[in-house]
Computed example of a mutant assay.
Amino acid sequence: MDAQIQADSPLKDQRNHQYAVLLSTMRSGSTLLKALIASTSDIAHMPEVNFQTVLQSSKKRSELEAAHPNEKTLLLKRPAWFHETKRYPIVPGDFPVQRIILIRDVYETVRSVGRMMMGKTFDRFPGLWGQKLIAKRYWTPITKNLLQHGQSVPDQSLTVRYEDILREPEKETLTIFRFLGSEQTEGVRSYSMPENFRWKWGSDDGSPRIKSKEVLPPRDLSPTDQARKEIICGLPSIQKVRIAAGYQN
């Protein structure tokens, strides 16, 4: 994580609720991270919502606040869609909004996005060609946007890598809790199933892995996947963004 954390949240004011948004590409672990963050009692666990609509509507905000009277922080999540490469993220509102910026390395992201679209057949056709296309046209511009967005509002942003969450979940989540001004004093590696909605494949996650209710180690890549990853990571435009995101190899 690359933001300076202060004990008191910069969003503390006279409002009863404060807003935070979880910004990411699709298939970057946002469902897992949202579940971990919302495992504490003062952060609301909500289904995926379009924060770009909610934050600019006083009516929608009032409805959310009424539905969550006891949770101080309302955490809104909605990853970037394919057509948003030039404008995601937009965080409207005339009040401070905290941003948790989630980054995941390119190959694991595009492989998962392809499978989300077409299942495992994507690995065979369009295969590497399709993965390159997603990497160039989706992962690269969105990740670049996310990094620039965090730099534009450094006092209200915290950037975290998915791989760090899998490696040290307690450390990473404790940093997030402090950033959000949560009363939670310990990091977590497990979480509960949401009570008021169901995870769905294609919007949240819904896979058996997320339903384990704990952080699991990453899967090993097959030799074919490892070879494809080296090809994609070696592309100059992608390599530049990976280095900016802290992926050196």
Rank of each mutant, 00 (worst) to 15 (best):
R27P: 03
A35C: 13
A35V: 03
L22S: 07
I37M: 04
R27I: 08
G29V: 13
L23S: 10
S39R: 09
S24Y: 07
S39V: 05
K34P: 00
H17K: 05
L23G: 09
S39I: 04
T31A: 13
M26I: 14
T25V: 11
L32D: 07
T25R: 14
I43D: 01
H17N: 05
M26L: 15
L23I: 12
H17E: 04
L23Q: 07
Y19P: 00
R27T: 10
K34V: 03
Q18D: 09
T31N: 13
I37Y: 01
I37W: 01
Y19D: 04
L36Q: 05
Q18G: 04
Y19V: 03
L22T: 09
A20M: 02
A38S: 15
K34T: 12
R27G: 10
N16E: 13
T25L: 15
R15L: 08
S39Y: 04
L22G: 07
G29S: 12
D42W: 01
Y19N: 04
T31M: 10
T40Q: 11
M26D: 12
K34Y: 00
L32G: 06
A38M: 02
T40N: 11
N16Y: 02
L32S: 09
T40L: 02
A35L: 15
T25N: 15
Y19Q: 04
M26S: 15
T40G: 09
M26R: 14
N16G: 13
L36A: 07
Q14S: 14
L23D: 06
L22I: 12
I37S: 04
I43Y: 01
H17I: 05
A20N: 01
Q14A: 14
R15A: 14
S30K: 09
